[in-house]
């Protein structure tokens, strides 16, 4: 019983040792081989694979670029839902706030084209913060239909198309916007691969006080050397 066990053990040990030695030899040899021989081979592999991808990409590209079959994904612009609704301060039976369309009140009131500031508004909107140049309310709001906007030439404009209104005055910004140099976006830079969604003017700018609001930085790298936090430079 004992003797075979011992033999088995030494054998196992020997095998283990030979495995270790073998591994070492293999490792050295592999390192050497990989360094000299397969370096060339690897390069060839990499090159050929690069070529093949390049070919398929090129094919795709030519297909995309041929005018007949050019497939470009859309650039879409986020839109406001429609005319805003005014919070009345009342709640319904379910406790939900009651809102009213602008026209609910304004249909019975005469539009005053001279109103410019919140102080001018002696009935409602008194706490509205207005800081948008020297324009009057009715420069943009439509005195004939308060559920819509009005372009400078008097044409009616839906609230969803507000950007057309902004662009009347803010031409350079609109131009930059069209070229991706103004306004945030998400999605794809390469429209042959996917769509892009751009922010609307009013996503970032409050039309009544369009200056971008101040923000509080929420994320700071916690550099090791900042503990305890460094106050000033």
């Amino acid at each position: 019983m004992r003797v075979p066990g011992e033999i088995a053990m030494t054998r196992r040990r020997r095998r283990r040792r030979s495995v270790v030695v073998g591994l070492l030899v293999c490792a050295t040899a592999a390192g050497w081989y990989a360094g000299s021989a397969s370096r060339g081979a690897g390069q060839v592999d990499a090159q050929s694979s690069k070529q093949s991808t390049a070919n398929t990409r090129d094919v795709q590209r030519t297909v995309e670029n041929s005018p007949s079959s050019m497939r470009r994904f859309a650039v879409s612009i986020r839109k406001p839902e429609g005319p805003p609704r005014v919070i009345t301060g009342l709640t319904d039976l379910h406790g939900n706030p009651v809102t009213a369309a602008c026209s609910t009140c304004h249909s019975t009131r005469k539009p005053n084209s001279t109103n410019r500031t919140a102080q001018d508004l002696n009935e409602f909107h008194g706490n509205l913060k207005i800081s948008h140049g020297a324009i009057s309310c009715l420069s943009c709001h439509n005195g004939e239909d308060y559920d819509a906007l009005k372009l400078a030439d008097g044409r009616r404009l839906e609230f969803t198309e507000v950007m057309t209104l902004c662009a009347q005055c803010h031409g350079p910004q609109m131009k930059a916007y069209e070229h991706g140099a103004h306004g945030g976006m998400t999605g794809h830079w390469d429209l042959s691969r996917g769509p892009q969604v751009k922010n609307n003017c009013v996503d970032c700018h409050n039309p009544h006080a369009p200056q971008f609001p101040k923000m509080q930085p929420t994320f700071k790298p916690k550099d090791r050397f900042l503990e305890p936090p460094r106050t000033a430079h």
Partner: peptide
């Protein structure tokens, strides 16, 4: 083909990214 994460996260739209080899790209504008 997607935009970098920092560009998508920018709330001010200060970041412009694109292909310098494409004359029509945003970055070239």
């Amino acid at each position: 083909g997607r935009l970098p994460a920092c560009l998508e996260a920018c709330p001010t739209g200060a970041r412009v990214f694109g292909d310098l080899n494409d004359p029509e790209s945003d970055i070239n504008w």
